[in-house]
């Protein structure tokens, strides 16, 4: 079982966001492995372990710093890492990212491609299915339950108010949602072993972006609200305000 996982270095969700010149100001921002990609890495490792053979390769399109997150993935247990290096990578749009990732997969053997359902910086929910489409393989998104056996994939995902079961054949792409598994932490031994594992760095040219950023802003400030009162006694005033002032009831 040969598995490729796709991982991105992203700002932590606890980061305080400051926008300068249409970009996230990185000052004081902690960067981490995208939380949804941890599920992808864990699933890849678990599937390889269950199969008893094969390899897990992690690919990241990122600036040089993303080697740190790739080392984390190696420390978790992946066999090899590839950094597609471009200074423009962190801000690249989904379609441009997908093209670069698909090009890097071509010529590599794989049974499974594992993605996070979303990178928590650009929140595009689209790189996984776009890469799969460019490679001509099926893709199942937002998977919370996965079984892979006899060349067949059966996956479950939650859609609005329902749960879907989806089937496909290998090779196949999956995007991972919270609930799929509990990602492992890198052990001390893993961290030591990671230092000796191969990390390929390939410079890439992203070409013209498929999506151009015209502006980036902070969310509009909410108008100041008001405290109506204390306890159950304030309820009639609340209901009246919702009905007559805000007109939402």
């Amino acid at each position: 079982m040969n598995i490729i996982t796709f991982v991105k270095r992203v700002p932590s969700t606890t980061a305080n966001v400051v926008i300068t010149e249409n970009q996230l100001n990185p000052e004081g921002v902690e960067f981490v492995l995208n939380p949804y990609d941890e599920y992808a890495v864990e699933e890849a490792l678990a599937i390889k372990e269950a199969a008893g053979e094969g390899s897990v390769t992690a690919i990241s399109l990122g600036a040089g710093e993303a080697q740190k997150e790739l080392r984390t993935v190696l420390a978790m247990g992946a066999d090899a890492a590839v950094l597609l290096a471009s200074p423009l990578a962190p801000a690249a749009d989904g379609a441009t990212t997908a093209r670069a990732l698909a090009a890097a997969v071509k010529g590599r053997e794989f049974d499974l491609l594992l993605f996070g359902k979303q990178a928590v910086d650009r929140d595009q929910h689209g790189v996984g299915p776009a890469v799969a489409t460019l490679l001509g393989v099926p893709c199942i998104t937002e998977v919370v339950k996965l079984s892979v056996a006899d060349g067949k994939v059966i996956a479950e995902r939650e859609v609005e108010g329902a749960r879907e079961t989806i089937e496909a054949s290998l090779p196949c792409a999956i995007t991972c949602q919270k609930g799929l598994n509990t990602p492992r932490f890198a052990s001390l031994r893993g961290i030591m072993a990671a230092k000796k594992k191969p990390m390929e760095v390939i410079d890439v040219d992203l070409g013209t972006a498929a999506v151009e950023v015209v502006a980036m802003n902070m969310p509009p400030a909410r108008p100041a609200g008001r405290i109506l009162g204390e306890g159950a006694a304030a309820v009639p005033e609340l209901v009246a305000a919702l009905r007559n002032e805000s007109k939402v009831l």
């Binding site: 969700t13 926008i19 013209t208 999506v211 151009e212 950023v213 015209v214 980036m216 802003n217």
Partner: peptide, 17 residues
């Protein structure tokens, strides 16, 4: 216009295609 960074910022984009 779309939210990014979990809704902590918004970006306005034009699609070049």
């Amino acid at each position: 216009t779309r939210p990014i960074l979990g809704g902590k910022a918004f970006t306005t984009v034009k699609i070049n295609g």
